[in-house]
């Protein structure tokens, strides 16, 4: 038997596998195909205060080893989520993490204030969506704004606040340190990389929004590097995400320093990816003689020079 339970700050998870925001809806569709109580948790689709229609199609372009998306935070808004989706998520027997995206500090604060009164386990601040014009990545690429936003949000809620950071910055370490100073309870690394796909015949971008966020195995090395780098710089728990397709990928993130991992694009290829990857992780651990998945955390042995 392999022990799978992990701690992310004050939050206990039955295992380190979380479904990443925007690739799992609110769990309803996925519950048809697997037992969601086997997951560590689900990060909701990114929510905004008011409903959001999202960007014009096309919203997806395939790339080598991945894909670009430009969904643009299409979501029913916080009210509808609280009324129609949260009760369902809460019943699934795994942790519920709500991904929150705002246009402004006020919006983030209002959403966190309202979520404080609900049975969610943690709030994941989306400081990183590359597909909207306001908030999100604009805030998330400025260390001062990250710190200030998290400090204000923390006044509004006692829930654990996770900062999901964007890789589209010069120094991910500076952003992580800012999140730590602001009082974040954990840091989620990484959201998608901003990219462009062109149709050479029409000389137009393939995506209706022109640019989009790159995800999938193509970004795994970037994500691993950022997790490893940030783990040397901050004292907060890290959640690794970016191109995890199998159990080995997931364990690599734990070794790099992550306490938990999120599975995103893999779920779009294989609906049961999250539960499959958890099984693969425990099988690999068993084969390695590792009795507790948490033993992998932060065991990266860098070369000395």
């Amino acid at each position: 038997m392999v022990t799978t339970a992990v701690q992310v700050g004050s939050l206990s998870l039955k295992n380190p596998v979380l479904a990443a925001s925007g690739t799992f809806g609110f769990g309803r569709e996925m519950a048809q195909y697997q037992d969601l109580s086997r997951l560590g948790g689900i990060c909701s689709k990114g929510l905004t205060l008011r409903p959001r229609a999202g960007n014009p199609p096309p919203r997806v372009a395939e790339t080598s080893c991945g894909m670009l998306n430009s969904v643009g935070l299409q979501n029913p808004g916080l009210d509808v989520f609280l009324r129609d989706e949260l009760p369902f998520m809460r019943q699934q027997g795994c942790a519920v993490i709500v991904n929150v995206a705002g246009h402004s500090t006020d919006e983030y604060c209002e959403m966190c204030r309202r979520l404080d009164q609900t049975p969610v386990d943690a709030i994941e601040l989306n400081l990183s969506c590359p597909n909207v014009r306001e908030g999100c990545m604009l805030i998330g690429s400025d260390a001062r704004q990250i710190e200030s936003l998290i400090r204000q949000v923390k006044q509004e809620t006692r829930k654990p606040v996770w900062a999901k950071l964007t890789p589209n910055v010069t120094s991910i370490g500076d952003m992580a340190l800012a999140a730590q100073r602001g009082g974040a309870d954990a840091i989620v690394l990484i959201n998608t990389l901003l990219g462009l796909a062109i149709d050479y015949r029409t000389r137009r971008p393939i995506l209706g929004n022109n640019t989009g966020g790159l995800s999938g195995p193509a970004i795994k090395p970037v994500a691993l590097r950022m997790v490893a780098e940030v783990s040397q710089m901050v004292d907060l728990p890290l959640i690794g995400v970016g191109g995890i397709m199998n159990g080995q990928d997931a364990i690599e993130f734990l070794i790099a320093g992550a306490s938990a991992i999120e599975i995103g694009t893999a779920s779009l290829i294989r609906p049961t990816a999250c539960t499959d990857i958890l099984e693969e992780m425990t099988a690999l651990a068993q084969a390695d003689g590792v009795t507790d998945l948490a033993e992998y955390r932060g065991t990266l042995r860098l070369w000395g020079y």
């Binding site: 925007g22 690739t23 689709k45 229609a53 014009p56 199609p57 919203r59 609906p271």
Partner: peptide, 27 residues
Amino acid sequence: EERMACGIGVCLVCACQVREADGATGY
């Protein structure tokens, strides 16, 4: 027909513009 990824309704990339019951358009 629209460019698709998951095919099961979770990723929201295959948006089609439709008229909702209240007359407003949405995806």
